[in-house]
Design a protein around this nucleic acid. Structure first.
Length: 493
RNA sequence: CGGGGCGUGGCGCAGUCCGGUAGCGCACCUGCUUUGGGAGCAGGGGGUCGCCGGUUCGAAUCCGGCCGCCCCGACCA
């Protein structure tokens, strides 16, 4: 295993090194696409399970819509096409043909199999889904319609980064239909809150929920909300979005319902999503120079037991004792792994499980067994202490909770230290050129042109306008016009 | 798509300037000794040198083209 680059030396290499060292994912033969390895996919499965339970608790059901979307569908909502046209993969043929060129056999699209109407690989599924909703919705009795889909999508990005921006990515997309604008808005906010809960309580990543500016809105939405997180390099990352789609898609796909009084109206829609990008946030939020650090609530393996021995007899004893402990622990704390591999010394194993981010390590040697105890070590702060067998389950449970809390506290402290109230353009530019960046709470006039000008000059964008923000008017940090209050600026992933 | 860097066993690299048929560390396999923070010794397996073409008696090395990866910009979740 190659050394992990230090964060202070090269943050972006560090990020890639952590992914490689923890065996989360690797590049694939397809440009911009990644192979998610078992260690990475196990985390995604936990993310899926937790979110899926939450969605269902809130009344949603799952369905599956096709990967391929007729080209004409995308064109039905004007803003939507404009937003996605530049990054669509297109399926044009349905058959290959073997040909021999210079004695070598290869395959080419069979010209005779050209599709009359080409398909695009979904960049998001609003269009196919709303085409179906037209058929499913007739009456107010069919509402609300609360459907979620777990799927892969493709957006042909110019520059990709593992998890953070890949050509193909996995996500969930919720698509709901409602009888009134108020219900739609309530759903949009409810799901944003679900994402906030998930990011903060499960992933230990503090986030700022709030509406995006008009420029940053989802193509086709009336209003877009996001949760924004700060990474260890002080850049912002949009961790999830929730869109109030108004009647835009209902009108584009002619989805109407009849209310109790017999009046026919277009329905009101929302969509909301969280993707494998969140894994990039998870990796960057907590990991250190020794590798991955995972919050216990999302970690696939909560604890690993490393037995220590000097000879075959001891090996048998320690392994048996370790398996006994694991069997007692698992029902209380979750998956516990016993690393009984021969041929590897304990020190090597410690290093490996640290790289992979397992929150708690339990060391069990002859001296421990004699004293009916283990040495318990935490991944994130390396604190080590002896714990008696009798109280082990409670102690590990408490340790996992301590780790979860520590990680959240560290992240929120880091965010506080790197969030600055900025009141002049000089201070603003200094922060992002000479300083360490981070979040700037600054006045903004509300003008899209002004927002773009700021981005042009500094590469800093308005992440969102947090619900909890200072709305006292002031002067726009850039143009000096009267402001709508302070919004959050940052360089973003 | 522009600017910079890099493609050589699984990983990290040397060799390229100055052409002579591929080497080091780690990992892997076998055996013995080991095992409380990345063990030691001995033996062993594995590479069309990113791809295509050219020059040459001979190319990892020189020339031309292409592809991919990483970093920095323009687009985005």
């Amino acid at each position: 295993m190659a050394e992990i680059t230090k964060r202070s030396d090269d943050y972006s290499r560090w990020y890639q090194d952590v992914i490689a060292a923890a065996e989360l994912a690797e590049n694939s033969p397809v440009r911009g696409c990644m192979v998610i390895r078992p260690n990475g996919y196990a985390i995604w499965e936990n993310i899926q399970r937790t979110l899926d339970d939450k969605f269902k608790e809130l009344g949603h059901v799952n369905a599956y819509f096709p990967l391929l979307i007729p080209k004409s569908f995308l064109a039905k909502e004007a803003e939507h096409v404009e937003g996605f046209a530049k990054e669509c993969a297109i399926v044009t043929h349905h058959r290959l043909k073997q040909v021999t060129v210079d004695g070598k056999t290869t395959v080419v699209p069979d010209p005779d199999s050209k599709l009359e109407e080409e398909y695009i690989i979904r960049p998001t599924s609003e269009t196919v889904i709303w085409d179906a909703y037209r058929k499913w919705i007739q009456s107010y009795r069919d509402l609300p319609l609360l459907i979620n889909q777990w799927a892969n999508v493709m957006r042909w990005e110019m520059r990709t980064r593992m998890f953070l921006r890949t050509t193909e990515f996995l996500w969930q997309e919720g698509h709901t239909a409602h009888a009134t604008a108020e219900e739609g808005r309530a759903e949009t906010l409810q799901m944003l809150e679900a994402y906030r809960w998930f990011a903060e309580e499960i992933l230990a990543i503090p986030v700022l929920p709030g509406p995006k500016t008009e420029n940053e809105r989802f193509a086709g939405a009336v209003e877009t909300f996001s949760i924004e997180a700060m990474m260890q390099d002080n850049k912002a990352l949009q961790a999830a979005t929730s869109h109030d789609l108004g009647q835009n898609f209902a009108k584009a796909f002619d989805v109407k319902y009849q209310d109790a009084e017999g009046k026919v109206e277009h329905v009101w829609a929302t969509s909301w999503g969280m993707s494998t990008r969140i894994m990039g946030a998870l990796i960057m939020a907590h990991s250190d120079d020794n590798g991955l650090v995972l919050p216990p609530r999302i970690a696939p393996t909560k604890a690993v037991i490393v037995p220590i021995w000097k000879n075959d007899e001891e090996m048998a004893q320690m392994c048996e004792a370790a398996r006994d402990l694991a069997a007692k622990l698992s029902p209380v704390v979750g998956t516990v792994h016993v690393d009984d591999r021969d041929k590897m010394r304990p020190g090597w194993k410690y290093g490996e499980w640290e790289r992979k981010g397992v929150p708690v390590r339990l060391e069990l040697g002859p001296r421990d067994l004699a004293g009916q105890q283990v040495m318990m070590a935490a991944r994130h702060d390396r604190k080590k202490q002896p714990v008696g067998f009798a109280v082990l389950a409670d102690a590990v449970q408490a340790e996992l909770e301590r780790i979860q809390t520590d990680l959240y506290d560290a992240a929120i402290t880091r965010r506080r230290e790197n969030t600055h109230v900025v009141d002049s353009w000089d201070a603003f530019t200094d922060l992002y050129t000479k300083g360490d960046g981070g979040f700037a709470l600054a006045h903004w006039c509300g003008g899209g042109d002004c927002e773009e000008a700021i981005q042009q000059k500094t590469k800093v964008t308005i992440r969102n306008m947090p619900f909890e923000r200072d709305e006292t008017p002031g002067e726009c940090v850039h143009c000096g016009k009267p402001s709508i209050g302070r919004v959050v600026f940052a360089q973003a992933y």
